[in-house]
Amino acid sequence: MASRPRKRRKALGGLAPIAFISLGLYTLWVIYPVFASATLSLTDARTNRQTMSFVGLENYTRMFSDPRLGRTFAFTLIVTILVTLVSNVGGVLFAMMLNNQAKNYKVMRTLAFIPQVLSGVVVAFMWRMMFNQNGLINSSALKYGWLDAPINWLGTREMATFCVCVTVAWASTAFCTVVYMAGLQSVPPELMDAARVDGAGPIKRFFNVTWPMLAPATTTCVVLGLIGALKLYDILAVLTSGGPANSTNSLAYYVIAVAFGNGHTGYGAALGILLLVLTAAVSAIATRILRKRETNL
């Protein structure tokens, strides 16, 4: 009996078949679609046309005359940068505040981590109910006399952008807090004590000891924050639908609107490739800079 598994192993080739199936599936569902999209982006394909023809880079040159793309691009960058910044600063501060073994703080941590298990749709509905014209913020503020007139939260380009940032940052601050919390627990207490003995105040201790030790956590939070913000879709679908006046279209949202809503398959594919290049560039640059910082320590 002892020799049989050996034979079977040879016949089956061990793990290789499973690995090849997985690699095949991965190629089919990840690699192929990207190449197929790149090909589509060179055609004038539309859902309401039976035929498509090769148009070279026309879809890419068309981007320069697309009246909506400029604002879409700007909005995507604003949200990506602001959300990454706010959620990292907030996450570090929040994690430092909650980094305590007492029971009270345990409960606070449990509460503070909740947003990161909620879906974007749930998060967006919660905030939409507050930002509406008669939503909870306006109605309570008017009721208690904090405001004379309702605030147009979702109505202007600036306010709607602000509201999107608040909503996204809220969820990602919770995530960053979790990650920074783990980072803080890896800071050796001796280092802190040594700094204290050297007479360093709390601010100096933070910048000289804590912050450098958090470098790996920062890399994680920043890179994931950037990629997450660039992919942003569900929160926009619920909170603003890209409005008002198409001022809160993220690039990811616009790709779907063009390719699926308007049926402009070719141009939508080209916008998708633009999104891919942007994401690749941003995450490569951020990873490089942050990893360098980690190794410099």
């Binding site: 679609p33 390719a259 398959t265």
Partner: peptide, 24 residues
């Protein structure tokens, strides 16, 4: 090589390949 290919998969936004995915 394979790690590099998988790293790409982590980063690609789902919107990029959705149309061909639907066709497949």
């Amino acid at each position: 090589i394979l790690t590099g290919i998988f790293a790409l998969g982590l980063m690609i936004p789902p919107q990029v390949g959705l149309q061909p995915t639907v066709q497949v």
